[in-house]
Amino acid sequence: MKAKQWFNLHAWAGLFVGVLLLVTCVSGTLATLSHEIEYLSDAKFRAIYSHSPTNFAAIEQTIAARYPGSQIIHVLRHKQAYLATEVSLKHNDAFLFVYLDGATGKWLGEGPWLRVSRFLRNWHMNLSLGWTGKLLVTSLAILLLLLVITSPLVYRQWWRYFFKKPSSLSLKNRSNWADWHKLLGLWSYWFIVVMALTGLWYLVEHGLQTAKVPHYVAPPAALKNMPQQSGRPISLGDVVNHAEAAFPSLQVRGVRYPSNVSKAIEVQGDNNDILLRLRANKVYLQPVTGSVLGVQKGQDLTLLHRIKDTADPLHFGNFAGLETKLIWAVFGALMSFICGAGLVMNWLRVKRKQPSLLKWFGVSGVALSALLIYSLAITWFSIQQRTVPAELIAPVL
């Protein structure tokens, strides 16, 4: 292909679903720092003693004293210890988020399922449109790969633009927008490649899930023949003690009680692995006796399983402290600007031949914008409430 043909392909790829790509970049950037946005918005999201170990027994005692008759669904202490520990609670047959200081168990506040982090995650993940929305969003990875491949072919001797001073930005001057588009695109190229590859995995994963092809570690065989025990499920503190005895190097950050008697308690944590999400390391426990049914270690994962547990931390930069999340957010903002600049450049390029902005945007652009507005409304209303399990195998506090 000639340079002109590569340019036309590059321009088409950027315009065809440019609005959707822009919205996905913006929502993803905000989602990266969504918990930090909550942290700044309300004191209940802020831990007090961020450098101390998690006191799960104290957390359970606080919940029992403040919410008698409730049951714990899930406990999570974030990787960023400055964030409050979250407890998902079944209280009066309704869902409730409770926020506590992980080190002391001190109550910090409560809230519903609807919150900034949940809203942004749902909208970014699938526009709250289920299977179709997930397909739309993940398919953008193909577009990104197309842009990544064509960019060096469009801009010959592209390396010369790394330190070229761009012109002052003018809303009506296409060449000025092009200068910034090239400069920021070059410096963000590595990030765009990461987003394209992780997005491509999400697309593959969506296909595997749709086809019901197993692609993750199977639960331990002991779960299939788990002995059913009557009695009170073990306490949160005992859960953690049993898990740490079975997996001494596990730094427990999450506990999930099962929704029926055929499932196990899952204890999740870190094990000094690099680029693995929380569920990569876990211990399965029998809910009543606390007997160990299985141990999964991130270091033992196969390549396919490791890719699955690496995609999220790499996509959102949530694999270290605040520093990596800020780096991801900055480059996410640059990527959003690049998308927006590409749309402006395309409009300015065809403005003389097609002076109508609406005609340039086209039927597909209008339809896509309407879809995005609809998805915003659906996201808002769909996460107003969350149902709780009818049966929960957890202690009644």
Rank of each mutant, 00 (worst) to 15 (best):
K2H: 10
K4M: 06
Q5R: 14
W6T: 13
N8W: 11
W12Y: 13
W12P: 03
A13M: 14
A13L: 15
V17R: 06
G18C: 11
V19E: 01
L20Y: 10
S27Q: 08
A31L: 06
S34V: 12
E38F: 05
L40G: 15
L40T: 15
A47K: 03
I48A: 08
Y49G: 06
P53T: 12
N55R: 04
F56T: 10
I59T: 15
E60H: 08
T62S: 10
I63M: 04
R66V: 05
Y67Q: 02
G69W: 02
G69Q: 01
Q71R: 03
A81H: 07
L83A: 04
E86M: 13
E86K: 11
V87D: 02
S88N: 14
D93N: 15
V98E: 05
Y99Q: 08
L100C: 13
G102V: 12
A103S: 09
T104Q: 07
G109S: 06
V116D: 00
R118M: 12
R118F: 08
N122T: 13
N122L: 10
N126I: 08
K134F: 12
K134D: 06
L136I: 15
I142H: 09
L143H: 04
L145N: 04
V148E: 03
I149V: 15
T150Q: 07
P152Y: 09
Q157S: 12
W158F: 13
W159D: 02
N176V: 13
L183I: 14
L186H: 03
M195V: 12
A196C: 06
T198C: 10
T198K: 07
Y202R: 02
G207K: 09
G207Y: 10
P214F: 05
H215Y: 13
H215C: 02
Y216F: 07
V217Q: 07
V217C: 00
A218T: 12
N225K: 11
R232F: 04
D238W: 05
H242W: 13
A245I: 02
L250D: 00
V252G: 02
R256Q: 13
Y257A: 11
N260Y: 13
V261N: 13
E266K: 12
G269S: 05
G269N: 02
G269V: 03
I274F: 08
K282Y: 07
V283A: 03
V283T: 12
Y284F: 15
Q286A: 15
S291L: 10
L293N: 08
L293K: 12
G294L: 11
V295I: 14
Q299W: 02
L301F: 09
L303G: 02
K308F: 09
D309R: 15
D312I: 15
G317L: 04
A320P: 00
G321K: 03
G332N: 02
F337V: 15
F337E: 00
L343S: 01
M345S: 00
R352Q: 05
L358C: 07
G362T: 14
V366K: 13
L371W: 11
Y374N: 08
S382A: 14
I383K: 03
Q385S: 09
I393N: 06
I393K: 05
A394S: 14
L397E: 00
